[in-house]
Design a protein around this nucleic acid. Structure first.
Lengths: 341, 341
DNA sequence: TTGAAAGCGGTACCAT
DNA sequence: ATGGTACCGCTTTCAA
């Protein structure tokens, strides 16, 4: 393990010069700089992490808390973890994983031992217990997701409400008068923060546009497709000519299968719009229009905010809602028989 | 951020006494110990991570490298990450996530800046590039999975070969003379380390027991069930009276569906044994016998080995193969018509 | 533009 | 059983 003094000696300069050359915090003559870089390279020097944390006051580590509930959707979750890690690395930060049984335990630990510069919160529940802890500690904390009680917090997320409204608007504009929402498994409306936002905005906007709206949950395991099929059947029976999908990829597949079995074509007989999916609905056997949830967008922003929290102008508390984007894939058309009711 | 000297003062003892009381590295009188613990508790003291890393030579952090290829099965992968994190925490260790595009970059970085005490390697490929790096660095490295070239490495994994043999043996013992293997998507036989081990051992043991064996891959996405159905159809056509399943939960479901459609009962008409699954095959609509892959077992052992690597008697290089365990769920019986061919 | 040296907050050796 | 203190390797004043 080569140390800074060895580099200094090899380059024929003082320790502090090496340090400054590496941090760029003060001007170094081109010549000196070259000799130092040469020494660093030849000796394979890499500053000791512990010493850096102690002397400087940056650890170059962010904590990521993820309380992995049994209902978390693994692929989506992983996409967020990955996106966070990538964004962090791009800024020379590493990610420390906090998956404690007790979500708050790890958080308060790293907050009080100074292991991390900031904390990123994933898998936010409506009444998340990490909220009050975040208010109590001094380590900057960024929520990816929006808890009910979010006063004073920095939160980042897709604007799910706007996304739901956008979906309703597009369908209403196309002439649909009755729209069904195929939602998450029931339990998610208590455990997670965004499903309720979609549902509420969907119903509100439908009301505003004088549209009849229906709602139904999906099954929580792909082994029970029944719940999903029943929901689709009911919504169609109630007269829906379009469905908004806010569910897993598996559930999308089941919906498409159910429509196919009933001999219904997309978009001639039924229009579809997927909201908040983080997989590619254009790759399904029937491509579906989508207003995607892009983990990278949220995570990049979250990391930016975390970095900003370390500087002078700490970000204002408040929600950062990401504008929804509509991607057409041909699953939206006018309802059969024109815009009749 | 309360420091050790404040604790010492509050408890009316010296700094070193506090340190020793906390580490338990030398006897402390019951009375003193109580006062120190009281002070620690009241002040909410938690030793500074950076200072510890620098002074002691333990960072209390393990790195976990996971090069997230596009074909990695998210739920299984997450189960391993979670199991590792839990095992680590139980031993007062945190997990630092290394998900660099370049898998080796992060590894060599943490190896040379002393950020972690050991490295755990996940998602091992047959010709994994992290192998030669592991040999080059001084940070102890534990592989969870077995690369082809594993000389000198410490590797932990389920004994997939023994598991495959056990499956064949049970079926052969029950009288089956023709067995099919429903395997992974084709690409996995190049990208991952364990599918080839199952396949090879399956065929070898079948040969030894004079059993006709067949093999077929599954589809790589649940959207393409066709490949899986075709494989099942072919294996049955070839006369298989039993199937060994080494595939995803989705594929299991498809297999069961295909059997049901053909009017085949389990186990009366076809026997099934699942090998290396990390989900519960007993919870499927038809419970299936399994020889499970238990992430916790592998990860606990890996963490143990990592800890051991930090002490005096570093573990011998070599493979640690975990014995397979057979869990019966009623999907195995004699072939129809007795043990006729 | 460069150097010397004072910490950062613990750990563990050497005393008592 | 307890205390004093020399480091651990780097960052960052303060001086030149």
């Amino acid at each position: 393990m080569v140390k800074i003094n060895e580099v200094a000696q090899a380059a024929g300069v003082s320790i502090s010069t090496v340090s400054y050359a590496l941090s760029g915090k003060r001007p170094i003559s081109p010549d000196t700089r070259r000799r130092i870089e040469k020494a660093v390279h030849e000796l394979g020097y890499s500053p000791n992490a512990g010493a850096r944390m102690l002397a400087g006051s940056r650890t170059q580590i962010f904590a990521l808390t993820e309380p992995l509930r049994k209902d978390t959707h693994a692929p989506t979750h992983m996409a967020f973890v990955l996106a966070t890690a990538v964004a962090a690395r791009r800024n020379d930060y590493d990610i420390l994983l906090l998956t404690d049984e007790d979500a708050t335990a790890g958080m308060s630990r790293v907050a009080s031992n100074g292991l991390v510069d900031a904390i990123l919160v994933l898998d936010v529940a409506p009444d998340d217990e990490r909220v009050k802890l975040a208010r109590a500690i001094s380590t900057p904390t960024i929520f990816i997701g929006i808890p009910n009680d979010n006063a004073g917090l920095v939160c980042v997320d897709l604007d799910f409400a706007a996304a739901a409204e956008l979906a309703v608007d597009r369908l209403a504009d196309a002439g649909h008068r009755a729209i069904g929402l195929v939602g998450q498994p029931e339990v998610s409306y208590e455990m997670s923060n965004f499903p309720p936002r979609v549902l509420a905005a969907f119903e509100k906007r439908a009301g505003e546009r004088d549209i009849r709206s229906g709602f139904g949950a999906t099954g929580s395991k792909h082994t029970s497709r029944t719940a999903t099929r029943r929901t689709v059947a009911r919504l169609l029976d109630e007269g829906a000519t379009a469905l908004v999908l806010h569910c897993t990829e598996e559930a999308h597949v089941v919906v498409l299968g159910e429509l196919a079995e009933r001999g219904l074509r997309v978009p001639e007989d039924v229009s579809l719009v997927s909201v908040g999916a983080s997989f590619d609905t254009a790759a399904l056997r029937t491509p579906v229009d989508m207003i995607p949830l892009v983990p990278q967008t949220s995570c990049d922003l979250a990391v930016d905010l975390a970095l900003q929290s370390l500087g002078e102008d700490r970000p204002e508390p408040g929600l950062r809602l990401i504008d929804p984007v509509y991607a057409a894939h041909g699953s939206l058309a006018a309802p059969p028989g024109g815009s009749a009711d």
